[in-house]
Design a protein around this nucleic acid. Structure first.
Lengths: 238, 238
DNA sequence: CGATGCGTTGATAACTTTCAAATTTAGTGG
DNA sequence: CCACTAAATTTGAAAGTTATCAACGCATCG
């Protein structure tokens, strides 16, 4: 983990050409030199692509928050381990999502690759300097933070609800973020979902089974969910 | 409520001398003219003091977020009413606390005075203009937002725990914010606490009784809590 | 082919809510 | 100041939900 950080440090300013197999969003939209005009473009110009194998740590809680990340491919979970050993997941990040944005000096949570994952890494100091020069980009960052805050508020509302409501909301949330809105591929395990929703794996599993029995969803495989009756899920949402 | 908003509009830029009965923090620390040098001072210079009786609405969800508030005396709760009628409390604000800070255009939650309350009201546009001119104040605002975000994260961690852990954490949180750290005066009702912690009033009441029986706290009156064994409460905290 | 990890299912226990009622506290008018 | 009413809080019993413990199925991988 320290080794990883060192590696990042050395590469953070070097622009790494994206590999040909990456999804469209990972490739520069235009090759213009000079200052970037969008957050997305800026990150690609300033960033380095790093690869992490399944379950690898990207950064650890309480490490200095020197970098900002954007998922290129794969997916990421942030989490915190409580003193009693329980794990609380802070969030899941899919391709295109930015994570690691911090107000404080240190990361508040740890981050891990869920499957094999590529992320764009940008040095925070360079990022902040750019934001200082470019109001449009500063605004975009503000927007990202605002979304994060709203997501957190939604999360609080979620956690006071029943198991069924939590799972239904989770599925709707993932469907909204997925490319195909009715067939959702879940990159994370049942344990990840359970730790995200504050439930046990057994309860998550049973609830999914119950939703399938109620014809609200179908489960062709355990990691693939088809939304069969979206309004039924929304009704559970409260 | 519309009437109130109108009243605020008319007074927002007028500096209102604090009434003599207010606590020290409500009085200007210095009478310097010109630009303020701290967030606290700036709000006093630009703000108007408004009074709200018990349970009065200060602003409503989805109203345009034109003002920023600071509690002078009394206390405030923010909340959201879910579609099924349940109420989720977003937070409690005590004297000195700032609330109503928003990234978006509209308030995400409603705000009400818990008891008779005085708040300092500042027009958001004036506030933002000042932040644009004064980097130190902009930083202070960032810090407030950061604290709010961290509080929200702590909240998420809280809501996945047991009733006893939630109540213990709540008491410790209130004790930290209270002037006298071992005798906590709770301005809010059991229902408010329950809606904050995602529990029922009965569970809150029973849990407090159990904590008293375990000699962790004492309850001279229902609204006054004495922390008798802080480390026992912290142990429950997870 | 056996080991291992992940997911599902079942039975039981623990915890929290719900419904109901008693008790205390606060507010109001006489 | 007292009595009375309304509101808030506490307590009890039963029902409902979720966690825990245990076993099983299924796929992947040496």
């Amino acid at each position: 983990m320290l080794t990883q950080t060192t590696t990042i440090r050395n590469e953070a300013f070097r622009v790494v050409p994206p590999s040909p197999g990456l999804p469209p969003m990972a490739r520069p939209a235009c090759g213009a030199a000079g200052e970037a005009h969008s957050l997305d473009q800026a990150m690609r110009l300033m960033g380095a692509v790093m690869s992490y194998p399944r379950n690898a740590e990207i950064f650890g809680e309480n490490e200095p928050a020197d970098f900002i990340y954007k998922v290129v491919s794969g997916s990421v979970r942030t989490y915190k381990v409580l003193s009693d050993g329980r794990r609380q997941i802070g969030g899941f990040y899919l391709p295109g999502d930015i994570f690691g944005l911090q107000f404080g000096d240190d990361y508040a949570l740890s981050a891990e690759a869920i499957g094999d994952t590529k992320v764009l890494v940008v040095k925070r100091s360079a990022f902040n300097a750019l934001a200082g020069r470019n109001a449009a980009i500063a605004q975009e960052i503000c927007a990202v933070t605002g979304r994060e805050l709203r997501a957190m508020q939604a999360r609080v509302l979620l956690l006071v609800k029943s198991a069924q409501e939590r799972v239904a909301s989770f599925l709707l949330e993932m469907a909204e973020r997925a490319p195909a809105s009715d067939a959702v591929e879940l990159p994370m395990s049942r344990q990840d979902i359970a730790d995200y929703l504050g439930l046990t794996i057994e309860t998550v599993s049973r609830t999914l089974t119950a939703l399938e029995a109620a014809a609200a969803i179908a489960l062709p495989t355990s990691r693939r969910v088809m939304l069969r009756n979206r309004s039924a899920l929304q009704r559970m949402n409260g």
